[in-house]
Write a protein that binds this DNA or RNA. Structure first.
Length: 204
DNA sequence: AAGAGGATGAACT
DNA sequence: GTTCATCCTCTTG
């Protein structure tokens, strides 16, 4: 049997533990490569969504519709959907095929390609709002619903997630209820939002 | 065929 | 703190 190289901080996208994955995705790097423009940032804020029991999850009750079908795919693909008719929200599908779990990426610390992010956002000056909030970061990185289903762990994908080995200790991470899910009854109270403590790039 | 509502952000007061 | 842009998805009839 051949030993598989384990890089510090590698995570298992097929895990059923979507809460653990939402936490572990903090500190990972999100990269887009579009029109020759490379943009890269560190994930600083996430939220877990877990079918079938979570009322805030689009696939609540394991409901399959054309939209939610992507969430039932294999962990490591992108679930991107339109919110409020305007915003393209980017999620990482997790768990094995047939399990509709996903992690919403809510904020990034920009690292590379900041000039392209400023251009897409029509901002003149760099400030913390550049990639803060799920709709804002999608604009900055050029993420669009047409990229729904993209494989995030494949080297030639337009959107990728990389493990750069950055280690965050438990003291660096806070959690809270999720944003904007007040309609979801008891599920709205679950502390399934994770973020880097005292990080100015985080929303809320 | 039609209507309601939403995992938001920006620009206001 | 409030308003509203804007359109897709799902449910109902």
């Amino acid at each position: 049997m051949r030993a598989k190289a384990i890089v510090s901080g590698d995570i298992d996208y097929q895990s059923e533990d979507v809460l653990g994955l939402a936490r572990q995705l903090l500190g990972k790097t999100l990269v887009t490569s579009l029109d020759g423009k490379i943009c890269r940032g560190i994930i600083a804020e996430t939220e877990a969504y877990r079918a079938p029991d979570d009322r805030a999850c689009h696939a609540y009750g394991n409901k399959i519709t054309p939209r939610t079908l992507t969430m039932f795919g294999r962990g490591g693909t992108a679930y991107i959907y339109l919110c409020y008719g305007i915003h393209h929200l980017f999620n990482v599908v997790t768990g094995p095929e047939g399990t509709a779990h996903a992690v919403l990426i809510r904020a990034l610390i920009p690292q590379e390609g900041i000039e392209f992010m400023l251009e897409r956002r029509k901002h003149k000056q760099l400030n913390y709002k550049l990639t803060r909030g799920p709709g804002a970061l999608s604009v900055a990185l050029g993420i669009h619903t047409k990229m729904n289903g993209t494989h995030l762990l494949t080297s030639n994908s337009a959107i990728r997630i990389l493990n750069t080995g950055l280690h965050l200790s438990t003291e660096d991470i806070s959690q809270s209820p999720r944003i904007g899910v007040g309609y979801a009854g008891e599920s709205a109270l679950l502390p399934w939002r994770f973020y880097v403590k005292n990080c100015p790039w985080v929303s809320g």
